[in-house]
């Protein structure tokens, strides 16, 4: 039962995605001029914030063994409402509250469907995603709405010291999530219930309530991601959530290929988000056609899912 020291194979296994990340940066810096410039790297960081933030919400849900794709609609709906209400002259305080309320509402709705009514989370949240898209379409009537108020835009489009505010938001949220996950009882139980919900119920923990809360928290985080994304772009584009649907999923699964044996985890998701954006902007820098970007994302998703399930298979023994 002694701990074995890591072999080179274990290291590749455990930190494979991290290595991939570093290799990708090196390759792109060599092959495309200007990739490694400070500005570009900062751009990557900035552009991956809403992706990363949203992926944190999804990571919480994935840890419980469920999935929540409603962000594909929530982000767009929040964006539309944010831009629309500002245009109608409402104060940013009120608008912010409404945006959070949308997150809270969709989160609670998801939780009721999945935890109380026991619907399968994949189908339920896809349905909610479409409901939100529908609501978005009705609200903005398919028109892109720009935000002109510089004061509002400066919530995100500014630097705090030398660092872009967005990057700070991302890391702050990461720190909070990671702390909750690893240092608190609730975090422990959330992880435990994803592995074996009976074991958690058996010791008298209200597992269903915890799961409910996870969906609510995820809803709030999705709304926050939508808020940030809209302010970063400076307006609400139609179906903004749809753009992020695949990338967020890919970031989380890339995350499972990092660190923790095929399980969703926050550091992994953070690295996954950066990695994904690095690849995408690297490809763009190399002159990839925009319509091929989804293809690249799809491939990345397949590869990361494959890596993480191979690794999980290794650990859970050969089945027959």
């Amino acid at each position: 039962m002694q701990k074995q020291s890591m072999t080179s194979k274990d290291i590749i296994n455990n930190y494979g995605a991290t290595f991939g990340f570093i290799i990708a940066i090196v390759v792109f810096s060599i092959t495309s001029r200007g990739f490694f410039s400070g500005l570009n790297l900062q751009n990557i960081l900035v552009q991956s914030t809403s992706l990363g933030i949203c992926a944190f919400g999804l990571t919480f849900v994935l840890i419980t063994g469920e999935i929540d794709l409603s962000y594909g609609g929530v982000i767009g709906l929040v964006g539309a409402v944010l831009a629309g209400m500002l245009k109608d002259g409402h104060s940013i305080g009120l608008v912010t509250l409404v945006c959070l309320a949308i997150g809270l509402g969709t989160g609670v709705f998801n939780a009721i469907l999945i935890v109380v009514l026991k619907l399968p989370s994949f189908l339920a949240t896809v349905a909610v995603m479409f409901l939100c898209m529908g609501a978005e379409r009705v609200y903005n009537q398919g028109i892109t709405t720009w935000i002109r108020d510089q004061g509002v835009l400066s919530i995100v489009q500014t630097n705090i010291g030398p660092v872009p505010a967005l990057v700070l938001y991302l890391f702050a949220l990461f720190a909070i999530c990671w702390f909750l996950q690893t240092q608190t009882k609730a975090g422990q139980y959330v992880r435990a219930l994803g592995e074996n919900i009976n074991a958690v119920k058996e010791v008298g923990i209200r597992a269903d309530l915890l799961k409910f809360l996870v969906f609510v928290v995820a809803g709030l985080i999705f709304a926050f991601a939508g808020y940030i994304e809209t302010l970063r772009i400076g307006g609400a584009v139609m179906y903004a959530g749809k753009q992020l649907l695949l990338s967020v999923l890919a970031a989380c699964f890339l995350g499972t290929a990092t660190f923790k044996a095929g399980k969703a985890n926050f550091p992994g998701t953070l690295i996954g988000a950066f990695f994904l954006y690095t690849l995408l902007s690297g490809f763009t820098a190399l002159g990839m056609k925009f319509y091929l970007v989804p293809v690249a994302q799809g491939l990345i998703l397949i590869i990361s899912v494959a890596i993480s399930s191979v690794r999980r298979g290794k650990i859970e023994q050969v089945q027959f």
Binding site: Q183, T184, A192, E195, N196, A199, V200, V203, I205
Partner: peptide, 26 residues
Amino acid sequence: LNLIPMLTVAQNICLGREPVTRFGTI
């Protein structure tokens, strides 16, 4: 048994009764 395979022995044994620091963390 109902154990949680990915967690450590200590985490399993103390599940639901984790000792906390004075800040409320584990």
